[in-house]
Design a protein around this nucleic acid. Structure first.
Lengths: 143, 143
DNA sequence: GACCAATCTTGGTCAGGCCAAGAGTACATC
DNA sequence: GATGTACTCTTGGCCTGACCAAGATTGGTC
């Protein structure tokens, strides 16, 4: 895991830095969520439902950047845990209407607290203002 | 690919932003390198050899953060393209001494130019100073 | 009714990052 | 100089996230 001094040509490439930092963050989050019996996608889905209300699977997927097939699997898990209900939309029976349950709303807050804590660990080396700067820059890049 | 407005709780998580930005960058680089008949790892390895001289596979791997088994595969490719020579180290016959060839040095410059160009595309939305800020922050995080 | 479009489901692929066992070599210690 | 430990390379694998495609069902249009 520990790395010797990386070549300068590598260290100066933002893409390389992004990749390394993202990988580290991803691993931390994965472990944390696994320990909480969850998945990073769960948080994204619950957050979308909380903010935009009941919706179809495609819609949620487009909001969160999750593929339909992955969405399917995640919703199976969330429904199994009772955090979400999947009912056939009476207004358009092609769709499944996904709705947040009370348990799901509690779960969302729980995961949010956990994840916010992990952010702190990831950005340990930065001050509060620097964290804001980083967030702002990344947001601009995503455009 | 195009995403609707993501939930606020998601958008404010640096880990999520990092992941998305890194994914986009990774995809761009992968395509670019594939078009050039190469691989992102090739650049890392060549850069390490250029900066630190001939070395063993483990050493190069530790410098670049590449696993030994992946290193093995990458060196097969690089050696096959004549950019690197793999000889048994006479001083310690457990080791393979990897040395950069003239062709490899040219290839390194070529890939460096290409990759530097891609960085520009990735960080299109940022000014020069902002790019430096981002690079500095990420470097600090990697610590 | 015939056709096209949208949605969900299912069953894959692919690459990156990682792990583990085996075989060969070096070295230290006894 | 024999033995045990540590190191290196090779090989073959696993897991996850991200993606893609085809089929079945339903909605809407002409």
């Amino acid at each position: 895991m520990e790395m010797d001094e990386a070549p300068a040509r590598l260290r100066c490439k933002p893409s390389w830095l992004l990749n390394k930092v993202s990988a580290r963050a991803h691993r931390l989050i994965k472990e944390t969520m696994a320990a909480a019996g969850g998945h990073a996608y769960h948080f994204a889905i619950l957050a979308a439902l909380d903010e935009f209300g009941p919706d179809s699977q495609v819609q949620i997927g487009q909001r969160c950047g999750i593929d339909q097939s992955d969405m399917h699997a995640m919703l199976n898990e969330l429904a199994g845990q009772g955090h979400v209900e999947r009912t056939s939309d009476p207004a358009d029976r092609r769709r499944n209407l996904i709705t947040l349950t009370a348990s799901g709303r509690r779960r969302l807050e729980e995961l949010d607290t956990t994840l916010t804590g992990v952010q702190h660990d990831i950005l340990d080396a930065l001050s509060a203002t620097e964290r804001d700067t980083l967030t702002a820059l990344l947001t601009r890049i995503l455009g």
